[in-house]
Design a binder for these strands. Structure first.
Lengths: 243, 243
DNA sequence: CGGTATGTTGACAGTGATCAAGAAAGGTGG
DNA sequence: CCACCTTTCTTGATCACTGTCAACATACCG
């Protein structure tokens, strides 16, 4: 199999289900994040030559454990990945979620500092770090793709780190707006991850997450269609909570 | 002036004072972060050709305001820089401090999302973003320097974001250990920034920062020589608070 | 030497964590 | 398709940590 084609087969209404299928063949396409600009076929082909996979992981399975050698870098094809650290008291902090098209697990250290887990069933591509680096040394487009990926992740976590001194309401609003953007939804969000995952990402308890969603619903900013399905009724008001 | 030489003139015991002087001349050296590996003269010279400055900023002055065009990237030569956002209620979140040798202000957006301010008196080099990018396209070493800088900043803020669900004691311990590492001190730290800055970085109030330092002192983990001078008496115990 | 900025400590209040119970959703096997 | 079980989510009561307000102490600077 030389190429991977990702084909959307249905609207992702049911969570934890694959809604893409992977087709072997030629004339294929990867998630759009992969294509930095039109005409960068070289970069794409070069990067693809270092590809392994895609590999499927079931929800809640570990892709990488804390302390594992950082030999590989990954890309989500389908599903949501979480990168997290578990503390001795059992508490867990989720540093980031990764959505389809995102490269993740890039680091300048020898070992992964965070564990990488499937937050939903996922399809993952693997890239050997050393291979990617040596390709980047030859192909300028690949180097700039790596830089762009890292810069984008940096911007994203910087925004997330602004939540450190903010209220539960603000944290949840920020999360919902961000998720809507990343899932490319305007109003209705199907939460792909559990409330526990959301809580661990926002530094709150699940109870507070639940209560805050209720509070936002009472204020008519959102509507809970079901536990995992939320309607953004007033994006502008939600955004005002962040400022 | 074609080169910048940074010479350490005295131990930085007094805060808010320059303890480096800048000397014009040849055969000069930049902070070591600049030199990716031995023999990368080309990268260094290429980058230096895009240099403007150094420019001096007084403590608490703004280098960049939120929303300013992201035309320039910066490097600290001396002092400490903070990047922060101020909210409508007057609260402020400091996303990162930058120490000498660090490149900062790199982004993939057109505008800076955070303001950049001098936390102490500082010396700053300016680099035109576009120039740096076009050099990186030719000089592979420059590209990998940019990637290394961004990756390093990403790793750092990821570690910081782990504090989101942690106690005040843990946040302060983490800050002190990190600062000691970055200032290259083993035991005695002269805090270069105010408690207010520390509080805004850790998402705590100044009162809690003060109380937590007192608490750590009572537990014999640290010793307060003066308000801005702290002795790490038991690094191992401090580190255990983080796990 | 005096005034301002910064840091420390105490009393109290509020947000969010914890503990506990119940409700809803999903999965499995008949 | 339904019964049952497990997981996940919701809501309430209480508690603890940290924020706020206030007063005082100390350091810095002209």
């Amino acid at each position: 199999m030389d190429h991977v084609e990702v084909v959307k087969t249905s609207k992702p209404t049911t969570r934890h289900r694959f809604f893409y299928k992977v087709v072997a063949g030629s004339g294929s396409s990867l998630p759009s994040a992969f294509i930095i600009e039109d005409g960068q076929k070289l970069a794409k082909r070069a990067v693809l030559s270092a590809r392994r996979g895609p590999i499927r992981f079931r929800r809640n399975s570990s892709i990488v454990c804390e302390g594992d050698p950082a030999d590989y870098v990954f890309m989500v094809i389908d599903g949501i990945v979480r990168r997290c650290k578990t503390f001795q008291n059992g508490a867990r902090a989720i540093v980031a979620f990764h959505t389809p098209g995102e490269l993740f697990g890039w680091t300048d250290e020898l070992k992964h500092a965070l564990s990488i887990e499937a937050a939903t069933n996922v399809l993952i591509l693997f890239f050997k770090r050393s291979a990617l680096l040596s390709i980047a040394a030859r192909e300028q487009k690949v180097a700039s793709f790596l830089l762009a990926s890292t810069t984008s992740e940096l911007r994203h976590i910087q925004e997330h780190s602004l939540l450190i001194n903010r209220s539960a309401k603000c944290r949840v609003a920020s999360f919902l707006l961000d998720l809507a953007t990343r899932l490319d939804e305007t109003t209705d969000i199907d939460l792909p991850m559990s409330h526990q995952d959301i809580a661990d990402h926002l530094g709150l308890s699940i109870e507070t997450v639940s209560r805050t969603i209720t509070e936002l619903e009472r204020a008519f900013l959102i509507e809970r269609v079901s536990a995992r399905s939320i309607l953004l009724k007033n994006r502008a008001a939600l955004a005002r909570l962040l400022v």
